[in-house]
Design a protein around this nucleic acid. Structure first.
Lengths: 341, 341
DNA sequence: TTGTACGCGTTATCAT
DNA sequence: ATGATAACGCGTACAA
């Protein structure tokens, strides 16, 4: 089939097969109108027959462009980032840009290592989840002239270009909603705070909103620790088993925690939302299907991914780009929130 | 800070700053023992100060090695593949190999396009989920001498190197388990079959096992269509609302479908597992936490990802590698399966 | 329209 | 131990 057995064919192989020079081969693909139709045909035919694919490394060097972008996420194993990645990759693919994905496992040193690896690969633009990165990381990118965007977190005061939403405001909204329902006694179930600016912002949002009404969360009712459904279960049990008055509302750091809390409440014979209101965050696909369906906040992560890609593409094109694009989250009251008894 | 304002520094910048040639710069990083300690220090210092990262494209060309591997998955938005990707990336990272991830959206043409893009990027090894790929794709890889592995699906008769498990056998096991409990009347709720060899194999497994006992699934009790919790709900309702005898056991193509079916059963007042047994597949993190906890089959996807990477690394090292590595799934009976009434 | 020749950034060979 | 220099594969001025 191919005459370049066992190794990838080069442009010179195609050129030889088509009886032209490598320049004509290159032009056939990069400036077809500058090639005579017959020659073009021969080249295309030869390229197809040999299965030639122009080696990107050569092209990158010659053009001074790699057509690679990067995205550093905390973990693959979270619907939120998976959706952002998918949308971003699709958006970049339309411009024939390859997206390199790096995973930090919520470790800012690993994130920095990933960024370095990506820079070595010649990424022309970079997206990063959250701004809680190693000090100097963004300066380094600036110094190298690599445009970047922070996704998901979108603090109003952030000095970086960003797309996402204000986590603090989102959690103030949730808290206010519960306050307006009449709740005064709150519990918190959250994922770890380390290397996660979003979580810190969310907690701050709740506490600020409560403080404005002279309220606060009792330490034993604030469970900030692990990720996942099980931590939600364990935490709810610990909160309800604690001495003193029980909270009437539990604000969770994400849907998985809230689902855990909801399941545990049922297991403990605590009625949701009658005895206890619970809120999640993210509107995971399962949230609406549960019984009772979870009150939560929807974030359009596909839009965040697409928008981030769009901003980076615009920056690469030298266009003006706003410092901040908000993708507003929407609180969706469903079956796990109600007035306290 | 850096003296190469706005652009990435080159080896020659470092060489100039350290008062050596680029050869010494290169050696400092690739063969440090061949460089005098003082010179080495000067180079390291200059590199650090300038923030030099060797541009991978140049190195790839010079070395004839890109240190890039690829993994084509159907979708990001599935815990199963997310975990495989994470583990594979971690395994490759230990050898300083960058993993390029491509997403086909269950479209074999897109998968082929992704593979081409990866080959153009110079991937040295490739993993692909499932063997249901465009005809000739694997031959193309063979012709170019790019080693590849099929993950997840692992048919005994498959002609390709693979790591995963036998989907057909796994579903025969599930079916046999239910038959042994006394079930004779089955329903099926499955994700789409197109471009998904695993699903086809799973369905075949159920049907074979039933056929051996002279049983089959009534067409109206076989719902093969969409993905996700909602399809599970809709399908269960349709099955239970159909005329004629109701199934006593529902075999689902994955956990999400089973969770949907389980939720709908409860909503319809059908007792699980008393009136109806339900099985899932994958042992998603939520499965064990539900009420009742889902009977399902656990697959060690992290191991699949690690093993696939290991096989590819071994192949790159020219070592002998088995054609097939089985990562056996484990059926976990929990609360959604019981004897029929 | 086409081919020659150079350069992209790095590594590796070969002198020194 | 070190430096000049020639690849690597491609794109693109420039010349023809």
């Amino acid at each position: 089939m191919t005459s370049t057995n066992g190794r990838a064919p080069r442009a010179r192989d195609v050129a030889a097969a088509a009886g032209v020079s490598t320049a004509t081969v290159s032009r056939t693909f990069n400036a077809p109108d500058k090639v005579a139709p017959e020659a073009r045909e021969r080249v295309l035919e030869a390229a197809r027959r040999l299965g030639w694919l122009p080696h990107a490394a050569g092209g990158a060097l010659a053009r001074g462009r790699t057509a690679i972008a990067g995205f550093v996420i905390p973990t693959f194993d979270n619907e939120v980032f998976a959706v952002q990645v998918g949308a971003m990759q699709a958006a970049f693919a339309e411009r024939d840009i390859t997206l390199l994905i790096g995973c930090s496992n919520y470790d800012s040193d690993r994130a920095a290592t990933q960024v370095e690896a990506m820079l070595a690969r010649g990424v022309e633009a970079l997206a990063v989840v959250g701004e809680a990165q190693r000090p100097g990381l963004f300066d380094f990118l600036d110094a190298r002239g690599v445009p970047f965007v922070v996704t998901y977190g979108c603090r109003p005061e952030s000095p970086y270009r960003r797309v996402g939403f204000d986590n603090r405001a989102a959690y103030r909204d949730i808290t206010r909603y519960l306050l307006d329902l009449g709740h005064r006694n709150f519990g918190l179930i959250f994922q770890p705070e380390e290397n996660n600016d979003r979580v810190a912002e969310r907690l701050a949002g709740v506490r600020e909103e409560l403080a404005e009404r002279g309220l606060s969360v009792r330490p034993r009712h604030a469970r900030i620790g692990r990720w996942g459904v099980r931590w939600g279960r364990e935490s709810l049990r610990a909160i309800l088993d604690a001495d003193g008055p029980r909270p009437t509302a539990i604000i969770c750091g994400n849907d998985h925690l809230a689902i855990g809390a909801s399941l545990e409440a049922r297991a403990m014979g605590v009625e949701v939302p009658g005895d206890l209101s619970i809120t999640g965050f993210d509107d995971v696909s399962l949230a609406a299907e549960l019984d009772p369906p979870l009150s939560t906040t929807r974030v359009d992560n596909a839009r965040i991914g697409r928008t981030a890609a769009g901003m980076l593409l615009a920056l690469l094109d030298g266009e003006a780009v706003p410092d901040r694009i908000e993708v507003p989250p929407v609180f969706i009251p469903r079956g796990t929130t109600a007035r306290p008894r």
